[in-house]
């Protein structure tokens, strides 16, 4: 796959998008069994990664100060 990045470096939305793509490609068929198996395994990992991110997420807040700096604020 052309965009197979390291799982941990993927943002949630990237992982979700790739997962959607994989499901669509599997639905299309036209793949060899080996390709399909590889996609399937990748898809499983992406789904696990997404689930993990969902359960661990906390809102990250930054604010621009009058000095033009960006400071982090506590989560609500």
């Amino acid at each position: 796959m052309e965009t197979e990045k390291d799982l941990q470096s993927l943002s949630f939305e990237e992982a979700l998008q790739e997962l959607e793509l994989i499901v669509a490609r599997l639905e299309d068929g036209e793949l060899t069994l080996d390709e399909s198996l590889a996609l399937f395994e990748r898809g499983q990992k992406l789904a696990e990664r997404c689930n993990k991110q969902l359960s661990q997420a906390t809102l990250r807040i930054e604010q621009l100060t009058a000095d033009g700096e960006i400071v982090e604020l506590p989560s609500p």
Partner: peptide
């Protein structure tokens, strides 16, 4: 997020069934 969880579960199920079909 509560709408994404079932979406993800749906994708996982689709992965499984596509693979079994294949």
């Amino acid at each position: 997020i509560e709408e994404i969880r079932p979406l993800l579960a749906g994708y996982q199920a689709m992965l499984q069934s596509e693979m079994q079909d294949l």
